[in-house]
Design a protein around this nucleic acid. Sequence first.
DNA 1: TGACAATAGTTGTTGGAACGACTAAATGGG
DNA 2: CCCATTTAGTCGTTCCAACAACTATTGTCA
Lengths: 145, 145
Amino acid sequence: MGCMDVKLLRQAAFVATLRTADALEADVAGLLKPDRLSPPLYNVLRIVAGAGAEGLRCGEIGERLISREPDVTRLVDRLARRRLVGRRRDRSDGRVVRVVMTSTGQALLDRLAGPMLALHDAQFGALPRADLERLVALLDRVHGR
Amino acid sequence: MGCMDVKLLRQAAFVATLRTADALEADVAGLLKPDRLSPPLYNVLRIVAGAGAEGLRCGEIGERLISREPDVTRLVDRLARRRLVGRRRDRSDGRVVRVVMTSTGQALLDRLAGPMLALHDAQFGALPRADLERLVALLDRVHGR
DNA sequence: TGACAATAGTTGTTGGAACGACTAAATGGG
DNA sequence: CCCATTTAGTCGTTCCAACAACTATTGTCA
């Protein structure tokens, strides 16, 4: 390992990051499937829940998503059809749509919170705190370039 | 940071991994787009190129893919339609299909090799060798659980 | 103020992904 | 040997994602 070419090492880091992310997300997808939620949908739900009662604009949701989705409208559409979020136009600026949480959506999130923590425990249980901090710091240096 | 709850830290590691992977893959997708290749297609092409002249079975391709795709057939289909790979049935076992490289596909790969290395350089240039090794080791401990 | 540009979201369309059912070939036990 | 089981790959369908064009509202500046 010590004599590995830097180019190959970068490739290895690339592949390891994508592979790991894929495995982690697949686990989450499995956990969400019984509730017919995809990881992006769950992500939107969490983001909206994190905002206050005044809700969030679609654009803000897009900025905070883990994977930048270019079509927040239809993502919110699907949640709204299931009454997991609400939608209303802003009075002061007629262009913006504010997305707000519903009690149904909050209940679903509450029910999923425990299992999600347990899953992350299983996923990262092998790493002690110090290693987790190192991992986060290294990853931040990669995509925060 | 030192006083962060371990649960939050695991969540942070989860998000950082997915965010970073998404950014890395988006860069690659941008590089591949002019050639109408998606990251999975490029991945298949590289895997087939890595095998010898005897080719690879579809199942083996699926196992080696970065993100597990459940439908290698149509992935190979698209490459075969563009003559980037060839396909022929195995004589000894009539069930298996062997996927082999074509000169067209190899030429495309050769043309992309340089830019891809340059991209990975830009992506991981901030990390010296020791940090790259640490990153790979940490990621392997996560998904190799 | 009035035309033009910028912003926020929506919608149309096309192609790819997910999931499962299905065909064909090979293996293995009775 | 033959039928059940397993293995390899294909195909049908439905839904989602990407890309771009479009509508509506607001901001800007001559």
